[in-house]
Design a protein around this nucleic acid. Structure first.
Lengths: 406, 406
DNA sequence: CTCCTGGACTTAAAGGTTTTCGGAAACGTA
DNA sequence: TACGTTTCCGAAAACCTTTAAGTCCAGGAG
């Protein structure tokens, strides 16, 4: 801890100029001789002067600070959004004031007042589910953007994942693999996310003229429900060859129970999860094909639009952000991959590089529909060195991969 | 969005008093007639006046804001600490300014300057591992507290989990269960956390005069390493009856591989994890006995000590925070529980209530050493209604339980 | 009557910075 | 010398709130 903090006054007197000149020199403005500026800068460095953001903000009316109001940051969904937003802001000179209301409206009002009194330049409200939430923007002197949970007021700016589209893509993937007996297990029906995904499933199946295998099973988001549902489903619909699950937890439970019942994944039943919660999706065997909601991107986009709104360029409405299907071993099969490859939109589920994975390149080189190209690029020796868990990995040779695969 | 924000000046003139009187009325101070105060308050409400925290802070020199500097909030460990801290601050009128340096020292310096220029009253630095990190507190005009990762400077205030003690407790639990062939699988040896836990294991075993089964296996924190290590260990030390794992991921991998090799958990081998990462520890079968580092408590404590430090009551040094062993099915066995019960420190792994779980009460009532009391309170019918996964749950009847069990 | 007391209110300063405007000096031109 | 222009710098206002100090007045005591 040092003593008193230096003010521009101290800098000015040390440099032998007035505070006005010091201010101009420090802020790189005109009307200061080079030699004088030099002197001021030297004095500032000597005193390790830090301009007082409070005084500056008081004068300019801008604090270069935004509020991040979350209703439940314990939830897994708020965090990535928060990080994406922090990322976008941090790139500039913005700071983030974090408030967690814990789902309590009173506490939310309290935090809102605190943020307002701190004169934040903008506000991001991030929710814990995709169900619409009450607007806070009424009569607020600053722009507000909603992330993950949209505002009930369509005049507000909201960003949500496109659950309907993602479910449609997922089911399309199963159909392209040739699966025709497709079941759907999901969470509680009072979640809009569950209902939206169900809508996507229905629409994709209807479009293909395929009937759903059994009824949609509504339950919880948990692994336990996945196991339970698997038992019920395998009893009532023994002929299913694919399942779309509303969460990775459900999918992990399903895979476990199915295996115990003697069904192989993906050979007998292809399984798709949701959320790309990596501890589950990449660590279970087989690794789960799953929907990644790109929540960090969503948060970043929300932050960028908040910037735009602070410049007066608001874009009202509920913006649906595209999700991405991450294809892994639980839907191994190449027909669909091949089609996506032509369209140029295959992403390696491990290294996250588009069209670069050795696996995909090999696939392109060999044949339009190789029967089991997925594990092909890897020699038995290489696989055994890796403990046998390497199938579908690209062996770390992807150029530009974020992390080595395998 | 409303127009211009009201200042205390507007309030004063609307109420027909001077700004000094308005300030006094608003802040509930003496020397204001009741009727006048009434008038001012009404005016403030009418204009929805929010005092400008900037101006207030400029004058008082206190912003009632603290900085939270994290080196990697993506890590699982930073988040709970952050939440605990936010919790402690939010209870007062403090706000939290969040900065994520992403492990980059340059960026950290940048954020530090930004926080300083915003005149935060204090700073919490939270790290992503328990390895000591460089101090930032040199010549800082504000108090700093380190959470999870301690500062290299022993003169700073740091809070870290007591990894040594937790490992000792965990191994003590295994010994009390009668296990004598105890192995240890953990993460990379360049992690202080791994080395500390190893020290705890060694000390507990030495104290009991029991030799460790095989060498400590150092690897990664991943599920894959758990599987791999299990294969190696079951080959080289087939007689093991317990394993202490450095993380829940390792433990989950171990359980999976052990089961495939025909070993039952916990009957043949008792398994303990670390972190109490609930998606793994409660959802795997059997649910994992594991060490909970109480990171939220750690964060809260750090925040409280920051308050104290802001009052000049700093408590330098590295404070080791106690961890808690959460006993679940993967070490099912009652001898040890019974001993802990006498000491009054058994916590139900599901509902987190001390000594209240039906299981524990039943245990107390029946016999000092029931052979299989764990599943006893549950009728076969109740279990089948629950899908058979209910063993060890208390059936939701715990008084004061945070959430229904089972 | 004066003096004192205390209550109710106002004035003014302070806090640190930015910005506008005016002043002074230097220089060139008539 | 007189005057205009350019360059550099300083004085002061502004931002909004809090607070110490001061004013004013009514009422009580002497």
């Amino acid at each position: 801890m040092a003593g008193k903090r230096a003010t521009i006054n101290d800098v000015a007197s040390l440099a032998g100029v007035s505070i006005a000149t010091a201010s101009k020199a420090l802020n790189g403005r005109q009307d200061v001789r080079a030699a004088t500026r030099e002197r001021v800068l030297a004095a500032a460095a000597q005193l390790s002067f830090q301009p007082n953001a409070l005084a500056r903000g008081l004068l300019s009316g801008q604090t270069r600070t935004v509020g991040l109001l979350t209703s439940d940051s314990v939830g897994r969904f708020g965090i990535p959004v928060l990080l994406g937003a922090e990322d976008a802001f941090g790139a500039g000179e913005m700071a983030v004031l974090l408030c967690d209301a814990r789902g309590d409206a009173i506490r939310e009002q309290h935090h809102l007042r605190a943020l307002l009194s701190r004169r934040v330049d903008g506000l991001i409200v991030v929710g814990e589910s995709t169900d619409p939430r009450p607007s806070v923007s009424k009569d607020l002197p600053i722009p507000v953007v909603y992330a993950y949970a949209p505002s009930e007021d369509p005049g507000d700016v909201s960003f949500v994942p496109d659950d309907v589209g993602a479910a449609r893509t997922a089911v399309g993937h199963l159909l392209a693999l040739g699966r025709r007996r497709i079941a759907h297990i999901t969470g509680p029906s009072h979640y809009k996310a569950a209902r939206d995904r169900e809508e996507g499933v229905r629409s994709a199946l209807a479009e293909a003229g395929v009937a759903q295998a059994g009824q949609t099973l509504w339950g919880a988001w948990s692994q336990r429900w996945g196991r339970h549902a698997a038992e019920m489903l395998l009893m009532s619909e023994p002929s299913i060859d694919a399942v779309f699950c509303g969460s990775d937890q459900i999918a992990a439970g399903f895979v476990e129970a199915a295996r115990e019942r003697g069904r192989r994944v993906p050979d007998d039943i292809a399984v798709i999860g949701y959320d790309n919660w990596e501890v589950l999706s990449t660590e279970t065997r087989p690794a789960l094909t799953t929907v990644d909601m790109k929540l960090e991107t969503l948060g970043r986009t929300a932050a960028q639009h908040l910037f735009a709104a602070m410049d007066g360029k608001a874009t009202p409405g509920i913006h649906k952000m595209p999700c991405e299907l991450i294809i892994r071993d639980s839907t191994r099969g190449t027909a669909y991959l091949w089609a996506r490859l032509r369209a140029g939109s295959v992403t390696c589920g491990t290294c996250h590089v588009r069209n670069r994975c050795v696996f995909v390149r090999r696939l392109r080189a060999v044949t339009p529909h190789p029967a089991s190209a997925h594990a092909a690029p890897f020699s038995a020796r290489w696989r055994s060195r890796r403990g046998g868990y390497a199938s579908g990995r690209c062996g770390g040779r992807c150029p530009g991969a974020r992390r080595p695969c395998g």
